[in-house]
Simulated assay, not measured.
Amino acid sequence: MNFSETAWKVFNQSIEDYHVLDNVETIPSNPFSEGSLERILYAKNWIDTVQWHLEDIIRDENINPLEALQLKRAIDASNQKRTDLVEFIDGWFLDQYKNIDPKAEAKINTETPAWAVDRLSILALKIFHMDLEANRESATEQHRIACQAKLDVLLSQKSDLSTSIDQLLKDIENGDVKMKVYKQMKMYNDESLNPILYQKEKK
């Protein structure tokens, strides 16, 4: 089984496990062994799945403003965890390929392996929920047909993205692509960089 197949299997297990209770407060029970890549991928997708549902909840037009603010902060915190874990996964890849000497003509990819994996994780969620809509009995036939058409596109995208990820990893292993990682350096959560936060401290 190649990497993308492994990741896809883990992502879908995480999604299925979450939907047993379908509750954003559920504490995950990661089934994979400590230190394994599968455990990291499961944790990554669980964060994405919870955030997917937080984004649904906050769009309720009748939501209490205070609850909406709390949800917005939960989403911000989730985004930071997501970024941190993506960078952790890139660190895992860097360690895996630390003994690879890139060729002199090696290219640099537009995104790192972990950010491509991040897109695959989100895509797994899109496919899961679009499949639900394409088969929802309470929906109109027109709705189900439209969702099936979208699902077909998502499945094609999954195939292409999976192939691209595996090709990227192979190119890194062969020295044809140089793996280079930049930290995201998000500023809005940093009290020393966000002017709203550091100006507040002066008052």
Rank of each mutant, 00 (worst) to 15 (best):
N62I: 00
F32P: 01
M130C: 11
A104D: 14
L161T: 01
Q142S: 14
A77R: 14
L193H: 06
E173N: 13
W92L: 05
K150M: 11
Q148I: 00
E87H: 08
D190G: 02
R39P: 01
D118N: 15
T110W: 10
P102N: 08
T6D: 03
K183W: 03
N189E: 12
A68W: 03
R136D: 15
D190P: 03
N12Y: 04
E111S: 10
C147Y: 11
M130F: 15
E38D: 13
W115Q: 06
I172G: 04
K203N: 11
D48K: 15
P31V: 04
K126L: 15
V86Y: 03
P28E: 09
K98W: 01
A77T: 12
K203A: 05
N23V: 00
K107E: 12
A149L: 13
G35T: 07
R119V: 01
K200D: 12
Q70L: 10
K9V: 07
I47D: 04
K72T: 09
S164Y: 07
E38P: 01
A74Y: 04
S36G: 09
I127P: 07
I57D: 00
R144H: 12
N109Y: 15
F3G: 02
Y97A: 06
Y42L: 03
E61A: 12
H129F: 14
A43H: 09
F88D: 08
E25A: 11
L168H: 03
L54S: 01
Q157Y: 08
I172Y: 05
A104F: 13
N99S: 11
R59F: 06
N62G: 14
W52I: 05
M130T: 15
V177R: 06
K200C: 02
S159I: 11
D56Y: 08
H129L: 08
P31L: 01
I165T: 07
P102S: 07
A124R: 11
E133H: 04
D152L: 10
L154Q: 09
N135T: 10
A104W: 08
V177I: 15
D166M: 03
Q70K: 14
N109F: 15
D171W: 05
I172V: 13
E38C: 08
V24D: 10
H19T: 07
I63K: 05
